[in-house]
């Protein structure tokens, strides 16, 4: 018996050999807590791994790390991520310049998004709002986010 019976459930055995079980249940029965606890899901790494290092395989990087300016991008982004300068990344100017020079050769690849202007606005707002982000009620800190890589 792969499916239990209980209150508020109707069960059919369908198909030629009755191999297709169909259960139609009341909303309340389905909304009740499940007795089943599953093992934790397969971890899906983001851009920064739990150990604080950069995940170059993150799909969020798109072609940045794999394209023709991949090494320059990595150098610049690594420098920034591990920077202990104040402000952060201010010691990476040269590496960013090298990256920019490379990218300038590939305007097809490193051109604008559809919404660059909108982005500029958003960015301004983000920078504006970042100062009070910590006390904004609807901007909770992620409890299990990886620590900054320092």
């Amino acid at each position: 018996m792969s499916v239990s019976e209980g209150e508020g459930r109707a069960v059919w055995r369908l198909g030629e050999q009755g191999q297709h079980t169909l259960v139609v249940a009341a909303r309340e029965a389905l909304a009740a807590p499940s007795a089943l606890a599953l093992p934790p899901p397969e971890p899906a790494p983001g851009l920064i791994l739990p150990d604080g290092s950069i995940n170059w395989g993150c799909p969020c990087l798109g072609g940045m790390a794999t394209g023709p300016c991949g090494t320059q991008f990595r150098d610049a982004f690594s420098c920034f991520h591990y920077s202990e300068a104040e402000p952060k990344g201010s010691d990476c100017y040269d590496k960013f310049s090298v990256m920019q020079e490379c990218m300038a050769q590939y305007p097809q690849l490193y051109a604008k998004d559809d919404d660059d202007d909108e982005l500029a606005d958003e960015l301004g707002a983000a920078l504006q709002g970042a100062a009070d982000a910590s006390d904004a009620p609807d901007a909770p800190d992620a409890p299990d986010a990886p620590p900054p890589g320092r």
Binding site: G46, L47, I48, C58, C60, L61, M64, F77, H81, A126, G129, A130, A133, S134, A136, D138, A139, P140, D141, A142, A145, P146, P147, P148
Partner: peptide, 14 residues
């Protein structure tokens, strides 16, 4: 990438 980075550094922007 910028936004992923922001988020992965423990800040959730509204």
């Amino acid at each position: 990438i910028a936004n992923v980075y922001i988020e992965s550094q423990s800040r959730t922007r509204r």
